[in-house]
């Protein structure tokens, strides 16, 4: 059963990811990406990370994708490179190298049999909001605060770039 769920999710994720890079229109790419993200969220849930799955859905598939959609629709960029597509040198070598890279990655990681032994029994609240929060606000308090600053930087930066002046 679990296998089935996994394979459905995996195929969904990979297929929609492929779709992201194959779609002619950006809008379709965005929509495909949303599917991918949801599939990933699904797998998070299966990997005992329920909280992450939720955040993935809300933050990623929700917020970020809206941002993408918004930009895509705002820009009304109709020209797609597919219309003028000609597989040049760059495209060919790019594809070749990237595919080779992927193959290599898969090959090597496949051989990586020396993973630490799988923990068979996880604590019941593993990956729950409470357990994560416990770690976040104790051990990783500083990163959390740093994230705040990061977001502030993003705001300031966007303001700087979009020329918001009082």
């Amino acid at each position: 059963m679990e296998n089935l769920f996994f394979y459905i999710a995996a195929i969904l994720a990979v297929a929609s990811a492929g779709s992201v890079i194959l779609q002619r229109k950006v809008m379709y790419s965005v929509l495909s990406l949303i599917v991918t993200l949801l599939a990933v969220a699904w797998m998070y849930a299966m990997l005992s990370a329920p909280f992450l799955a939720v955040v993935q859905v809300i933050l990623y598939a929700g917020a970020i994708m809206v941002l993408f959609l918004f930009v895509v629709m705002m820009l009304k960029y109709e020209k797609t490179e597919i219309q003028r597509f000609r597989p040049g040198l760059l495209w060919c070598t790019g594809l070749l190298v990237a595919v080779f890279f992927l193959m290599k990655l898969i090959y090597v990681i496949n051989r990586a049999s020396s993973l630490p032994p799988k923990v068979t029994t996880l604590p019941p609240d593993f990956g729950s909001i409470k357990s994560l929060g416990g770690v976040l606000y104790t051990q990783y308090l500083l990163p959390v605060e740093l994230t705040g600053i990061l977001l502030l930087v993003a705001v300031v930066g966007v303001a700087l770039l979009s020329g918001i002046k009082k």
């Binding site: 990586a112 020396s114 993973l115």
Partner: peptide, 8 residues
Amino acid sequence: GVPPMLQI
């Protein structure tokens, strides 16, 4: 030996 995962 070094695990390939680490190498990569």
